[in-house]
Computed example of a mutant assay.
Amino acid sequence: MPPSPRGDEGTSRPPLLEIVIPAYNEEGRLPGGLLQLCAKLARMPFPTAVIVVDNASTDHTAEIVTNWPRGPVPVRLIQCAIPGKGAAVRAGLLGTSAPFVGFCDADMATDLDAIDHALGLLLSGERVVIGSRAHQGSLVENRHSRIRELGAFGFRALAGALVQGVSDTQCGFKFFEGVLARETAARLRTSGFAFDVEFLARCVERGSPVREIPVRWHDMPGSRFSPARHTFGIVLELGRIWVRLRARPRTAPQPAWEPPLDPVGYP
């Protein structure tokens, strides 16, 4: 673990920032991702922490976290048996307590220097700050196929109808005021790929506009998304979100989840 100018004192104070990493069978990418993230957070002038959510992995993802060396940035494990990235992010956010929280992907495709920008905006009063690959200031390395690009264009068009004014709902780099994130996570019902759309729409619904920031983003190998296998389920998921957001409140309690249409939902 890289040394920190804070030494180990950050572990004895409550964190100002907690970052959630949803992980499903990430034994290959998680160690490198954790090293990068912890090295970045160790240079922050305040306490931080990392939560890895093991989403019912069948590899050694959980063991990597439980055996992670103790250092200036605490890393802890949360288990989530419900399949889907949305379920994992929800579990992780509900396990936080910090004033500011966020989540990012295990592959760290987004350059972590953007954390400084995001946190600065949160400290200045913004409540939702997300990375956007569509921002004119972003630098994006993209090796996706033409078919996947076409699918992404169609998804953005549908998502834009649900979260107006947001150009990229799916970049795996999002930060929030902590109370808002936990209250929104408690209401989240989408467990698969499109969970970001519902999450951001509910933030806007609560009067918290989304601030997009430029990022440096590198396409990383290991994506599990397949246009042939997942497109139909994603369209249905977006339809469910559309109905859910426009439904009138009911007096009877609603179930926390619906049957997942995209059982994994990881990039």
Rank of each mutant, 00 (worst) to 15 (best):
R187N: 13
G32R: 12
W242G: 01
V215F: 07
W217S: 10
F175R: 07
M1T: 13
R224I: 13
F232Q: 09
S167K: 13
F199D: 01
P14N: 12
G33M: 06
R156F: 04
H218I: 12
I82D: 07
L121A: 11
R156P: 01
G165Q: 11
D168R: 07
S57A: 10
S4V: 06
L119R: 00
D196G: 03
V101N: 02
G131S: 06
E9W: 12
L93K: 06
K174Y: 02
P74N: 07
R43C: 05
R70H: 13
L261G: 05
A186R: 14
L188G: 03
V210N: 04
R76K: 10
G95V: 01
A39H: 05
Q164G: 12
L139Q: 10
R216H: 13
G207K: 13
P14W: 12
V89W: 00
P15R: 13
V20F: 10
W217G: 00
L30V: 02
Y266D: 09
Q136G: 08
D116A: 14
P214H: 08
E27F: 04
A114C: 12
P259V: 13
T66Y: 05
R182A: 12
L180G: 15
T11D: 06
S167A: 15
R148A: 08
E212N: 03
R224E: 14
L37P: 08
I64P: 00
L34A: 06
Y266P: 00
R148S: 09
E63H: 07
I213E: 02
I19P: 00
V204F: 06
T251V: 11
A228V: 14
V75I: 08
R90I: 03
V210E: 00
C104E: 04
P69C: 08
A201T: 01
L77Q: 03
T190G: 05
N25I: 06
S132Y: 02
Q170D: 11
V210G: 03
R248A: 15
L17R: 02
E237I: 05
V210P: 00
V50C: 00
F199I: 07
L245V: 02
C38T: 15
S132M: 01
P83V: 02
A185D: 02
R246Y: 01
V20N: 12
G95D: 02
C38R: 02
R29V: 09
A23W: 03
E27K: 06
T58W: 06
F199W: 10
E198C: 08
L34Q: 08
I78S: 08
P260L: 07
P83R: 10
G207F: 04
V179M: 14
F103Q: 11
V129Q: 03
A109C: 15
T169N: 10
P31C: 09
P5H: 15
P259S: 11
F199Y: 13
P83E: 01
G84A: 06
D59R: 03
A152W: 06
